[in-house]
């Protein structure tokens, strides 16, 4: 499947739906030091950093992408803090110039040592309230309806929903289907789901059938998820030496940190004909 080229004249957008419910304060599997909310904060802030850097040219940051980060927990709305607080959809150049703060972290230097690296923060870890996933999906639908009216020929927007629990405000399949029914001339909105685990259950990455999923909730998230594109499957199999089959869904169940990294990296990979920035992985900070 070949999508239209992403360019400043024809940008596209990412929407991240971040579960901020109370259970996100639990530790994530395989990392006893951090809560799921902390880990998610690191993953998505790092993704934004890499996206900014890859859109950076000598003359400035090119607006290939607009980005929304919607939190859902005690409230449903923009998760941005600082200068971008309350903004729903922000061009990547504005994201570049307006982090809430820039932290310093230590990063492996590849030679056994560590070096300091800058770590911009656009939103913080929050874990409070229930899981109003339906409201978050509906809000996203509103944002993308506006976006698609203005960008009818864009690369299909990609929505990544990251959650650790079941929706507490209804059946999310209904708003998920409404969201996926939105489309540009290039195709339908793509919705991917990452389910975080706090236990030791083995992660199920990118299934292509619901037959072997362990429970009804996993089957629901599977049904909500769009298939990965051919470009994403080819990229995953080449760059990450995976063996993902055709028709696999953009869905990870019981995700450990590595699975979250893979899902974000592969699920946000867009067709890149000539000047779409590569979204590359990064070595973890300490």
């Amino acid at each position: 499947m070949g999508y239209v080229e992403i360019s400043r004249r024809n940008p596209t957008c990412y929407v991240f739906l971040i579960d901020q419910s109370g259970s996100m304060s639990e530790k994530i599997a395989d990392d006893p030091d951090k809560s799921k909310a902390d880990k998610l904060k690191d993953f998505v802030n790092r993704f934004l950093t890499n996206l900014v850097v890859n859109c950076t040219k000598a003359e400035g940051v090119r607006d290939y992408f607009y980005v929304s980060v919607i939190g859902y927990g005690l409230n449903v709305g923009s998760a941005f803090i600082g200068p971008l607080a309350n903004k729903d959809l922000v061009p990547i150049s504005e994201i570049a110039d307006k982090p809430a703060r820039i932290e310093e972290r230590l990063k492996e230097d590849g030679a056994g040592g560590v070096v300091k690296t800058k770590f911009p923060i656009w939103f913080d870890a929050v874990a409070d309230g229930q899981t109003p996933m339906c409201q978050a999906l509906n809000k996203t639908k509103g944002i993308l309806e506006g976006w698609l009216a203005q960008h009818p020929n864009c690369h299909p927007p990609i929505v990544v929903n990251i959650t650790d629990g079941a929706a507490t405000d209804g059946n999310p399949l209904i708003p998920a289907e409404e969201l996926k029914n939105l489309k540009s001339s290039e195709g339908n909105v793509l919705l991917y789901n990452i389910h975080l685990s706090s236990g030791s259950a083995t992660a199920i990455r990118f299934p292509n059938s619901e037959a072997n999923l362990p429970e009804q909730y996993a089957q629901l998230l599977y049904t909500m998820s769009s298939p990965l594109t051919d470009d994403q499957i080819n990229y995953a199999n080449k760059a990450h030496e995976m063996n993902i089959e055709k028709n696999s869904r953009g869905f990870v169940y019981n995700a450990d940190p590595i699975s979250v990294f893979l899902a974000l990296d592969i699920g946000t990979k867009m067709a890149s004909p000539s000047d779409t920035p590569e979204i590359k992985g990064d070595t973890p900070e300490h």
Partner: peptide, 11 residues
């Protein structure tokens, strides 16, 4: 140079 120029240069 901003933080993102510096990081892009490091790459």
């Amino acid at each position: 140079l901003s933080w993102y120029d510096e990081m892009a240069l490091q790459n």
